[in-house]
Design a protein around this nucleic acid. Structure first.
Lengths: 114, 114
DNA sequence: TAAAGATATTCACATAAGCGCATATCTTTA
DNA sequence: TAAAGATATGCGCTTATGTGAATATCTTTA
């Protein structure tokens, strides 16, 4: 294990930790739909504005979202749609994991596929 | 946001947090190569056995690896290769992110692609 | 330039994670 | 069944992360 590979793994882990929060997952999927400013996110996700801003900061630091000021508001967009592709793959893994775990899981699977 | 969707996002985040550590990333790629038992991982990654076991526990709890006892040792394997696909996508995102950020980054990009 | 709107940051706190070290719990074999 | 090998867990500690509430910083407009 070279120092370089170790450094890469740290960066890689840092991106993954950007995904490791339910609220940020929600934000990322929302931004994938289309760009939003902070107020819009805050309102549509029913989350306090400071909470949204702090999560956006995490994503911004990892360059997973793009921030563009437009007047007084700041528009956020997904920086790379492969992030969503990766998340979708992990959701598929989750769905498989829930297969055959009873009826309760079935409705979850339905919802994931939606 | 239904309670169900919120629950799914928690599970999703839990899988992502399984990826959010450099050592576990290393372990997952190593297991993707082929199954290993704890000693083998410990030796080839040059990590203390308890450290490896604890990381494997995290991955096991999230059903990201499969544990099969074989005599005194326990063989671990990747439970779903889509986990690697997802990680590769995120590595590609990382590589793009480093593009045009100077010479130092170039060697990192080389290493990622390898 | 003062006020209002939009976003970001700070503080205090609670909880979760990771690590090294020691040790407990299997599982086989002598 | 005692000993050795292999793996898992507990403990103490340190660091990281998330949150609400308050507040600071920008940016526009009156």
């Amino acid at each position: 294990m070279t120092d370089l590979r170790a450094e890469i793994n740290k960066l890689h882990a840092s991106i993954c930790s950007g995904l490791a929060d339910p609220t940020r997952i929600l934000i990322l999927y929302t931004l994938h739909d289309h760009p939003h400013n902070v107020s819009e996110l805050s309102e549509s996700l029913e989350l306090p504005q400071p909470t949204v801003s702090r999560h956006l900061k995490v994503l911004r630091e990892r360059q997973m979202v793009l921030a563009e000021r437009d007047g007084q508001s700041v528009n956020y967009s997904l920086s790379d749609s492969r992030i969503i592709e990766a998340m979708d793959l992990l959701r598929a893994v989750l769905a498989s994991r829930l297969q055959g775990q009873g009826e309760l899981a079935d409705s979850v699977i339905q919802e994931i596929s939606a």
